[in-house]
């Protein structure tokens, strides 16, 4: 029974994805169809249009192997071997430096904003 419900839920998730893709193509939105599907599903859950119990185990199953799905794409790096033997090597430290900045800014801003809002609550 459990397996059947997981399979049915996977179809529902795929349905949201396909609707997202269709909306993307139809309205020519510069946003991936998968993100549109994500927003639709999140909205449906928030508005209680679609109950969590009818999708939770399927989503859990699908996400358990998330990293598997992008391996075929990452293997594609074999086609860009020569890029990293020359100047392209520089792209690695660039990404590392940019990641540092991202983490510092995101972490600092959220910590500062959280502190500011608790201070405000304490004062009032």
């Amino acid at each position: 029974m459990k397996i059947i419900s997981i399979i049915l839920q996977l179809f529902v998730i795929t349905g949201f994805y396909l609707i997202g893709e269709a909306i993307q193509v139809f309205f020519n939105i510069p946003l991936p169809g998968s993100i549109i599907g994500f927003l639709l599903l999140f909205t449906a859950l928030m508005l209680k249009i679609y109950p969590l119990e009818w999708i939770e185990s399927g989503a859990h199953f699908l996400l358990a192997f998330l990293s598997l799905y992008f391996i075929p794409a990452t293997v594609g790096v074999v086609e860009y071997g020569e890029l990293f033997s020359g100047k392209g090597m520089l792209l690695i430290p660039i990404v590392i430096a940019s990641t540092f900045l991202t983490m510092a800014v995101a972490g600092w801003v959220s910590q500062y904003a959280a502190k500011a809002s608790t201070d405000r609550k304490e004062r009032s």
Partner: peptide, 9 residues
Amino acid sequence: GPAVVALAI
């Protein structure tokens, strides 16, 4: 694609 949608959960 479907996995990204599932991140909504």
